[in-house]
Design a protein around this nucleic acid. Structure first.
Lengths: 365, 365
DNA sequence: CTGAAAGCGCTTACAG
DNA sequence: CTGAAAGCGCTTACAG
């Protein structure tokens, strides 16, 4: 039992105690169990029936040697990998972190590992990571976060994605990536922002400002456009100089709100296109002694986990972020029907909280 | 130039337009460039000088075919992978998300991909993921987040980690994992909590409660122990029934604070062992009409990004989370000096904000 | 049920 | 500088 074959010349014995910086191999297991490589493989994969005594010997040998299969060799032999790729702008951002929670949860159910890439919103790195994930033969590549409206970026991404898909890779995205013909989980940014605008005009507001991120991001464009539409429904027009563009971060929101005040603008209601920016805006208003919602009402978008705990709690358009992560993962894994692009629409729900109120009457009107 | 060799019988031509669900291979590139496999490999890896004209032909062929090397084949041939593994309790938690930002940043600098595993605080899944990452031959495995004081878990983890390390794998952790002999980035939980306690008694507080997570977590034990020590320095003793244990989450903090109030306890100061729990506690106090810091002062630990934006902003012990992520990545990559375990201590800094104040004088004393 | 052998797609001594 | 060939560690028809 477990006796070593004689004659393993020129090779150090692998008995689980040697320190030769080398991994235990299926060959080692087979040798120790005194069976063929094929049999050892079959036992460990459970693919075929194997005589019980052999089976036991293999299992014992694998345990004794603390054998771990080489996933690269398996991927090569099977021509398929156990990992999927997830590309986001910034793992530290609660929006992405929450979606990532959904992705990892769904991936775990399929026994898949998630390779995470955080691009710091650099389009070039997005392309570079896609290439890496393609090289890794990731089972699927998930793009989370707004696309860029940029022809060069689109061309470079497609140059990576097309051969990947042609070779059987799956791609799915969250948010609009117009230039990419891929399966999509699409939050209804336009409709959500429009509904929010209507709710806000319904409260009596007429004077608005919007704090946005870079307009090259499709999400920014959609939410801003939808918000304008919703205002129009209430007969309100948003002046261009009341749309302030800054970085798509908490600090960007702070800067945008500060700039708004610096210009002397005093809208009764401000919409920040993401909750993260709204958090910054709220801090800026507080630091400048502007009461929310007393002097300015403030609303965001996304409903990231923290916003209900803010003071005041933030009015927003709620998106089921964890679920969106699960859905984009499952969408990528589901066998495509022909080559038509699939789109799963996600409705946003307007959640009115204390950060918005009817405009105060101090100004005669 | 680029002319196909004749006689590729029984194989569809790979010209970049076929849809045969098969990846382009280095062999395809070599063939199109009319050079040997070895030469193609050398050009693409830049390892050796290659005659300029051949070099150009290879590069052109690779581009024309949109070639992406198979990372698994490379890993197998080179016996080294481009990926590292990161195991955390929950990517959605701002503590881990912020550390992950540091890890991904450092990994990017080394051209490494991060395989992310989120365990939902299930020790069994932590072990299972470690096995997967070992199979992936991850260059390093990073364990983020508190260890469990659990002998079975320690045994199972060591059974995975020891053979991995023996074979040349690197392991580094954040926080104390007593049972694991690995390189560690160690926040000074004891010292930080003690310093916080002293600052709080310095403010005049004598009546404390602590909201904690599961006591089997080393971080919980260390922070609680340190806090007790710090109180003792001020001559204050913490009664056992004023330590309330709940889940290590925002909702756990909410539940713990609610339970505290339900029992009728009215300490003047409450310490939640993490900011995430403190956020929940703050919400609970607000919902129950308890003014912070008017009636109860509240402090947390970690200084996750949001806490400065809360109302009131939270007193806490600040840890450089992004930097910790970078350091644990770099520590794992740095060649070990002998087999001694390395420990990098991270000091926590007490940051007093408006959530703590001197106890009110309403109670005669 | 079991084994010998081919093959997955690369890299890299080893000869020229 | 270049190529033929062995080898990385598996899986899986193909024969028995």
């Amino acid at each position: 039992m477990g006796d070593e074959r004689p004659g393993r010349l020129g090779r150090s014995v692998r008995d689980g105690t040697s320190h030769d910086r080398t991994h235990v191999t299926l060959q080692d297991v087979a040798r120790r169990a005194d069976v063929s490589l094929a049999t050892a493989s079959r036992v460990l994969n459970g693919t075929t029936q194997v005589r019980p005594d052999l089976r036991e010997r293999v299992i014992a040998a694998a345990a004794a040697l603390a054998y771990a299969p080489n996933a690269h060799a398996q991927a090569l032999a099977r021509a398929s990998s156990q990992a999927i790729g997830l590309i986001c702008h910034d793992v530290g951002d609660p929006y992405f972190a929450t979606i990532a929670r959904g992705v990892t949860r769904a991936a775990a159910e399929h026994g898949l590992l998630v390779m995470l890439a955080s691009t710091s919103r650099d389009p070039a790195r997005e392309v570079a990571y896609t290439a890496m994930l393609r090289a890794q033969r990731a089972r699927a590549i998930l793009l989370i976060g707004s696309g860029f409206e940029d022809r060069d970026w689109a061309r470079a991404m497609n140059a990576e994605l097309e051969p990947y898909i042609r070779a059987g890779g799956r791609v799915a995205v969250i948010s609009r990536h117009h230039s990419l013909q891929v399966d999509t989980v699409q939050p209804e940014n336009r409709e959500g922002a429009a509904a929010l605008a209507r709710a806000l005009t319904g409260l009596g507001h007429r004077d608005f400002a919007v704090l946005t991120g870079p307009h090259a991001l499709t999400t920014v464009a959609d939410r801003l456009g939808g918000f304008r539409d919703g205002l129009a429904d209430g007969g309100v027009r948003l002046a261009d100089d009341l749309v302030i563009e800054e970085a798509f971060t908490r600090d960007g929101g702070y800067a945008a709100a500060t700039e708004l005040l610096r210009r002397g603008s005093r809208p009764t209601c401000v919409f920040a296109v993401t909750d993260v920016m709204a958090i910054g805006a709220l801090a800026a208003f507080r630091d400048h002694g502007v009461d929310v919602p007393g002097q300015i009402s403030l609303a965001g978008f996304d409903d990231i986990p923290i916003v209900g705990d803010l003071v005041p709690p933030l009015t927003t358009v709620a998106l089921p972020l964890v679920e969106m992560g699960e859905r984009v993962m499952n969408l990528a894994l589901r066998e495509p029907h022909g080559s038509r692009r699939r789109v799963e629409r996600i409705a946003g729900e307007v959640v009115l909280r204390a950060s918005t109120a009817a405009p105060s009457r101090t100004v005669p009107g």
